[in-house]
Structures are given as C-alpha cells and as structure tokens.
Design a protein around this nucleic acid. Structure first.
Lengths: 246, 246
DNA sequence: ACTGAAATATGTCGGACTAATAATCGAGTC
DNA sequence: GACTCGATTATTAGTCCGACATATTTCAGT
C-alpha cells in the first residue's frame, strides 16, 4: 500500500495517483505540507491565482482543495485577507486524512505519545463495554481477525490490516457511534506505529498473547478483565514503539 | 446565539447569514439534511447541474459545498455514478461542524447518550492528567471560568460558555493535542445538552459544587480525586439530561 | 484622527470541454 | 435460445477559463 511520494518533480505539478481526483491530490500535497510544519500557523498562502498557476491547475481545482483543508480546520480564507494556516489547536487532528498527512513525513514522537495516551484512555474502556455488549457476530469478526493476524504476522500489510480489524471490531462492539468514529483515528495510529516498529531491526515481542487475553475476556463477558488486558496491551505496545524510536 | 433556522423559504435558495459564505451555507443546509436523516445512507443526490439550478446557485459554489461534505465523510462522489450519502459509520461524527449539524434538528436521544458515554470515558482520565500536569495558567483559567459560571448561571449563554471553557481548560491542561481536539467535540456536546436541559421546566440541581470538587482536586494535584470527581460530575449531568428528556 | 476612495484577493457566476464509468447493445459462444 | 463477454454510448462528475461581485485592507485627502 505505497504512498505516492516521490512523484512530485521539483515541487510542482501534483500528479494524481490512480483514481485520485486532482483537487484531492492538491489537498493531499498542501495538507501534508501544513501538518508537517512546512507552513507555520499564521502563514499566508500565496494568492489563489498565483498559486494555482504555479501548480499548473485551474483556480477551481485549487479552490476545491482549499475548501477541503478549511473543512478540516487547517486553514481559513477571508476575502482580501488571503488564506492563512490556523493554529494547531484548530486542526481536526483526529480526522483520518489529517492523521494520514501527519504520517507522510517523519512522525512526531511527541504526537505519537499523545495518540497512545488517547488509546490508553479509550481502548480499555471500550474493551469493557465490548465485553458487556458484544454480539456473536462481533466475536466472530474478532476471532477471524486474530487468526489472520497470527498467520500473516505484523510484518505484512495483511497482518497489520487484521490487527486494525481486531481493534476496530472491539470499538464497534460497544455499539457507540461516538466511539466507533474514533476507530478510524485510532486504527490509523495503530497501523502507522506498528509499521514504524516493524521498520526497526529488532523483532519485537509476539503480540498475539496480549490480544488473545483481551479476546478471551470479551468472550467471557468479563468487563474488568477485558479492560485490564487491553490496558496492558496498549502499555506494552507503547513500550515497543518507544524502544524502536529511541 | 441564534441559529439561522426559518430563513429557508420553501426549501429553496439557501441565504447566507452575516459573513457566511455561500458554499458554507449550502454545506450547512445539505449537511443538516443528511445528518438529520432527510437523506438516507446510499441515497443519491440530484445531479450537480440540476441541484445547483434548483438552489439558484452556481455549480462551482455547489461543488465546493460538496467537497466540504466529502471531507467530513458524509458523501462520496464518483464520475457518472453521482454523489451518494455514505453509511453513518464513515461520518466524522466528532467533527465540530457535523456535531453542530446534528443538533440543528431535534437531537437524537441515543446519540446524546453515546456522547455522554464518551465524556464519561475521556473526561475523568483527562482530569487525572490535568491534576498531574496543570500549570498556574491553567488553574487561573479554570478559576475564572468557574467564577463566571457561578455568576451567570447556566441559564445564560455566557454561563454555558463559561461551563465549556472550564471543561476545555481541563482538556487543555493535559497538554495532549489528541485530547485537546476532542474538546471541540465534547464542548459542543456539553453546550447543546446543557441548553437542552435548561429548556425543560424543572430547574436542575446546582452544578457548581460538582465543578468545584473537580477544580479543588486539580489544584491539589490529586489525580485520583480529580478523576473520581469528574466521573461523578458527568454521571450527574447525564442523570439530569436523561430526566429532562423522559 | 477620521473619512472615503482605490486597490486587491477571495467569492460567485456561467459556460465549455474532458474524462471516467455505468448502462446499453450486439457479437460470439455454449 | 439464453448467456457471457466486449465494444459503444450516454451520462455525470471533474477540470478549465474568463468575467464580475463582494468584502477588506490600505492609503490618500481633508
């Protein structure tokens, strides 16, 4: 699942990858640049006409891209005043796209720590609710994800995808839409950090037992055990990630 | 802080309020319609040309509005296939705009319950972190918000705003960006539900003591107490809200 | 210091053209 | 004859262009 990096020839002409729309490609390019700090909050973007010309795209396409960024809280446009990058506090950092953009460059260690802190808060609580409310279908999905994960390992895309599926299934089993949307954010964080861990030379611990403990507790309907097992899982995952980043 | 309801004459011509851009108004109109269930997931929106004509706006303005909705996961457009409403699971329900749209109509009881469940998970944990990490500035802001809240009461906009400020200050004091972004969502939920409670005839309990307990614990740097006090606060708030909805 | 005119960047408009793809139709096959 | 597969067509979103409207900043003039 390669990103499209490396195809911007000298910073111009954002080409769209397969199926990607032009304004989407522009949004991706600008969004990444902003989130990665290439533009600082308060910075003014070049004027629409000039910028769109520089990118060799129509003003319409450029504007549609900016609307997307504005919708995600990255920028704000005002007549005559131009388009400015908003302070980081206004960014929708949990938006899946923004999260993806945040991980296009070298990831910010501090931000990863923050995401893990969020996971450490949400996922144990979610596991508890899941243990109390899971349906047979939920369990089936979790079991399948676990099996896939065990077979493919986290070294493969399929394995990481299964890992995400497992965590998503737990969030989903809570039946709480507000928690379920977080699965998109948390899932993205899990995926990227897992891949990051994998990159480092040292092969980390086998994650399966941790996951199995959570699964067993949810099957048993034991909320306390599920919460505790998940807390442990996230803690250990953070340890692994931390050690692979120095 | 009135909404702009009542200005759509017979479902056509979305007029923009002061300062509001046209595409923003269209996005608001369509977004509310989608979130409130006027369009069901899978439904196809009328074709761009036809729809924009029906709304008496240019196709560009309409398209920019749709880009915003797409950025928030509400719709997806594909060439020739049209623009379709995505399943609710893909909506960025925690996006402040989406949240606002969700509360333009009669609020969904189940969804409010879900938001409270999220609050009950996140806010106690945040209060604990805040107790451990708060700066003098954080405390000053909380104290000011508390004073304002006590003076204006929750019956006024200013009072509700202070309530939100208090909760935001706690999230902010965690120093965790991922949690801070949630303040926009949680804050919105707090505001709307508080207003909703206020609407009902029975004057609810005085919320100040609950808040003071949280504040005192954070000042004392007592994480356990802060977490517990916040847990109680959210529980009581849910009780109040529940009883005012039947 | 205040007022108002001009400059300028975003916002909106309309229409033309492109590209992607769902739907249709027809040739070829079983 | 029914069915599968492939080319054709029709439709709809995507992109481009150029003009004008609107809102603010800026600055000149009093």
């Amino acid at each position: 699942m390669m990103q499209d990096e490396g195809q911007d020839n000298e910073g111009e002409k954002p080409k769209r990858g397969t199926g990607r729309r032009l304004h989407g490609a522009i949004a991706h390019k600008l969004g990444s640049a902003i989130v990665s700090g290439e533009y600082a909050p308060g910075d003014k973007l070049e004027a629409e006409v000039a910028f769109s010309e520089a990118l060799n795209v129509s003003r319409s396409a450029y504007r549609e891209a900016v609307q997307v960024l504005a919708a995600k809280g990255l920028v704000e446009s005002r007549t005559k005043a131009g388009t400015r990058v908003l302070p980081r506090s206004r960014w929708n950092l949990l938006d899946p796209d923004v999260l993806a953009w945040a991980f296009t460059g070298e990831p910010d260690i501090e931000f990863i720590r923050n995401l893990f802190e969020l996971r450490a808060i949400v996922e144990p609580a979610a596991a508890r609710l899941a243990a109390e409310r899971r349906t047979k279908d939920d369990l089936k999905i979790m079991k399948a994800a676990l099996a896939e994960m065990r077979q493919k390992t986290l070294a493969t895309d399929a394995g990481r995808s299964a890992d995400r599926d497992f965590h998503n299934a737990i969030l989903h089993a809570t039946g709480n839409d507000a928690l379920i949307v977080l699965s998109a954010s948390i899932g993205a964080a899990v995926a990227w950090t897992t891949q990051f861990k994998q990159r480092s030379r040292t092969l980390p611990r086998n994650p399966i037992p941790d996951h199995v403990r959570v699964y067993d507790a949810i099957v048993a309907g034991d909320g306390d055990a599920a919460s505790e097992a998940m807390r442990l899982l996230v803690d250990l995952a953070l340890d692994d990630t931390r050690s692979s980043m120095g």
